[in-house]
Write a protein that binds this DNA or RNA. Structure first.
Length: 259
DNA sequence: ATGGTAGGCGTCCTA
């Protein structure tokens, strides 16, 4: 089962690029972030025509996440638990059954947090605490589960082209990296790092020629429970998508599970 | 030389 994550930075502006990628990559499941659309405005029909069931957790103007799946989406749940006052649409999860078992698929758009310090950074760290709590609960089930998305976390210096330039950024601050490590240390696997020891990025800013200069960062991640990691066959980044027509500033990352 | 770009029911905010 091929499961992908893609921050598309606006589903309406990105629809042609999204449909092209879905047809080329043919993921069984895809979690999307930054759809920047309410549920009603999501182009479910065009995506459905490619064979996908669609679940949307939208928000007007900003954020917004979705799950696309060729198989039925079971036990859909919207929103990250832990704060009933949080109106930002950043979390969606559902179970997908394959021929050899089922997997809980969580799609997430972790807050950016800039500028730090400030209220946005406070919100980011609080959101990561809620994520850690959900991560603990999923681990306790001892089942295949994956959390994929735009984490807005640069885990290590090798994951950024110029670590010094990013030292004070909310994506790379020691507190941010420690909060991410706490989740890994619970027993979650960073699928890309489990299989690759290279320098690889998933985001290049639109500004200042970041893409042609390869000034990128690795912030889109797929985290797996041990039971999902047992089934992990491959993990890769669809880097070429960044060079396409009207691209997102992120590219897709995918895993292949023997499920 | 502190620049630059993209998206969104938008004349600023977020990234």
């Amino acid at each position: 089962m091929k499961i992908a994550t893609f921050n598309i930075n606006g589903v309406k502006a990105r629809l042609p690029a999204l449909l092209d990628w879905l047809q080329a990559a043919r993921p069984d499941v895809a979690v999307l972030q930054e759809i920047k659309s309410e549920d009603a405005g999501f182009p479910a029909e065009a995506i459905g025509d490619l064979g996908y069931n669609v679940a949307v957790h939208g928000q007007k103007g900003f954020n917004g996440v979705a799950i696309l799946s060729r198989r039925p989406l079971e036990d859909l749940s919207l929103g990250l638990p832990g704060d009933d006052d949080d109106a930002q649409a950043r979390w969606i999860e559902a179970t997908v059954s394959g021929d050899r078992g089922a997997v809980r698929v969580c799609g997430l758009y972790l807050p950016n947090g800039n500028p730090a310090p400030g209220p946005k950074y406070v919100y980011k760290l609080a959101w990561m605490e809620r994520l850690e709590a959900r991560a603990r609960a999923l681990l306790a089930e001892e089942q295949p589960a994956v959390m994929l998305g735009d984490y807005n976390v640069i885990p290590e210096p090798r994951d950024v082209h110029d670590p010094a330039a990013w030292a004070d950024d909310a994506l790379f601050l020691p507190q941010t990296r420690a909060a991410f490590r706490r989740i890994l240390n619970l027993g979650w696997y960073d699928a890309y790092r489990a299989l690759h020891d290279d320098v690889a990025y998933t985001f290049w800013d639109y500004q200042a020629g970041a893409w042609p200069k390869n000034y990128g960062i690795r912030i889109d991640h797929a985290l797996l429970t041990p039971q999902a990691a047992d089934r992990l066959r491959a993990c890769a980044i669809d880097r070429g998508v960044r060079g396409g027509e009207k691209p997102s500033d992120h590219v897709p990352l995918w895993i292949d599970l023997d499920i």
